[in-house]
């Protein structure tokens, strides 16, 4: 009897070892996917604005911050969570539109780098505003469906991770249907393909650009709302989000929505796999080295358009 038990436990440990490495990988994988989904949403925001207006919007991370912070403060004021989230999206969209009308549209025709500086100014402005309007503390939101982790083949996954992944998938699908199946969406695509031609066929490109800023703000805010229960939020989370989102968008190929999603997920995976298998200290470095290597091999990103210089 005792012999049998020892035998069993040894076998169990043996299997456990292999099982552990597999579950370890799955843990890394799902963590990376969750983190990456958020990057993907931020990158999608970058892409939408870039396509419509050629602007790289470094204030994109501030929309994520607004999504989280407004929801936190609205629900602290007694507003039910779904309504608070809706308010947050509306606030972010309003800020996105104001950003376009007050800062981007008046600077039409300025060089790309000048407009980048404007968006960086906007990012500092919004952060400064949030610090006054809210506070400088970190905040959390309750998870949408509890904190009890779900076991997937030995990996513990928070229910909120599925919300983040599902939300990202939904956002991508809605955006796809909007761009491909609606008239307004097609106008956005036309504007991104050739602004002059779009204007010639009667598309109001200014409206399209405003639409892109509003939509991009909404996507950012959704990302912020979905992820705050996991990552917490504060007035200054936007900078890091913008940095990672921009990297993801470039990795996937600027201007390609699918590329943004692929880039985001890949960046998230690179970070967690880097932390898990390489070194947690150098995980950001590992991710950026991989980005550099990919860009050297594919100078337009993974799914970017090939462009030809026109004289």
């Amino acid at each position: 009897m005792r012999h049998w038990r020892r035998e069993f436990s040894r076998r169990h440990i043996d299997i456990g070892g292999r099982y552990a490495s597999m579950s370890e990988f799955l843990q890394f994988f799902f963590s990376g996917l969750t983190v990456g989904a958020v990057y993907a949403l931020v990158a999608l925001g970058f892409t939408l604005i870039y396509n419509a207006s050629d602007v790289v919007n470094f204030a994109q991370g501030e929309f994520v911050m607004l999504g989280g912070m407004v929801t936190v403060f609205a629900s602290a004021a007694g507003v039910p969570l779904p309504l608070a989230a809706l308010i947050a999206i509306c606030v972010a969209v309003a800020v996105g539109l104001l950003l376009y009308w007050l800062a981007i549209a008046p600077a039409r025709g300025a060089s790309a780098v000048s407009i980048i500086i404007i968006t960086i100014g906007a990012s500092i402005f919004l952060k400064g505003g949030a610090q006054v309007a809210f506070d400088k503390q970190f905040h959390k939101l309750p998870s949408f469906s509890g904190d009890a982790p779900i076991d997937v083949l030995g990996a513990s996954i928070l229910p909120q991770s599925f919300w983040v992944l599902g939300g990202t998938l939904a956002a991508v699908l809605i955006l796809y249907v909007f761009l491909e199946k609606t008239l307004v969406g097609k106008a956005v695509l036309a504007t991104s393909a050739n602004r002059l031609a779009a204007r010639l066929v009667g598309i109001n490109t200014a409206t399209i650009m405003a639409l892109a800023f509003g939509g991009s703000a909404a996507i950012g805010a959704i990302a912020g709302i979905l992820v705050t229960p996991i990552t917490l939020t504060s007035y200054d989370v936007g900078t890091m989000m913008a940095l990672k989102g921009f990297a993801a968008a470039m990795l996937g190929g600027m201007g390609n929505p699918l590329g943004a999603v692929v880039g985001g997920l890949l960046l998230g995976l690179l970070e967690t796999l880097g932390a898990g298998y390489v070194s947690s200290t150098y995980k950001d470095g590992f991710a950026f080295v991989m980005i550099l290597v990919i860009l050297f091999a594919m100078p337009q990103g993974l799914l970017g358009r090939r462009t030809v210089d026109r004289v």
């Binding site: 992820v227 996991i230 990552t231």
Partner: peptide, 20 residues
């Protein structure tokens, strides 16, 4: 021994290694 960056939002990878 594991580390994480000041703005990191997910430390499950590091903790999984410690767990292992």
């Amino acid at each position: 021994e594991e580390t994480y960056g000041p703005r990191d939002t997910d430390m499950t990878a590091q903790l999984t290694k410690i767990k292992g």
